[in-house]
């Protein structure tokens, strides 16, 4: 059982590598943010898988990591549009800073 859980954790780490490739190559900022979010979720998955192997305290760490991944994306959205709402209808009045591609 430990062998299988470690194998699945290694598989999830491989998917993390794919996400990092997207972060490196992603033409636009949103792609890089998506890659970062997948890294966060992959981290949560690995922690979950290693919890039964190591100590079950890893679940608390996974909970915090899931929360931080969400807050990182909120930080990204706040950076692109000043009021952070990112509402297309409301964008017309406030001309937004042209985000680089």
């Amino acid at each position: 059982m430990t062998l299988w859980l470690s194998f699945v954790a290694a598989g999830v780490l491989a998917s993390l590598a794919g996400a990092l490739w997207r972060v490196w190559r992603g033409p636009r900022r949103a792609d890089r943010m998506m890659g970062a979010q997948l890294v966060g979720t992959g981290g949560v998955a690995v922690l979950m898988l290693l919890a039964p192997l190591g100590s079950w305290a890893a679940l608390d760490v996974a909970l915090v990591l899931a929360l931080l991944a969400a807050l990182a994306a909120v930080g990204f959205v706040k950076a692109t549009s000043p009021d952070g709402a990112g509402d297309p209808e409301e964008e017309e009045e406030t001309p937004r800073r042209k985000a680089d591609g």
Partner: peptide, 14 residues
């Protein structure tokens, strides 16, 4: 929620 936010943030970019 994050995918909604990121999609809206990406909507404005060229």
């Amino acid at each position: 929620t994050v995918s909604q936010l990121v999609a809206r943030a990406a909507l404005g970019e060229e």
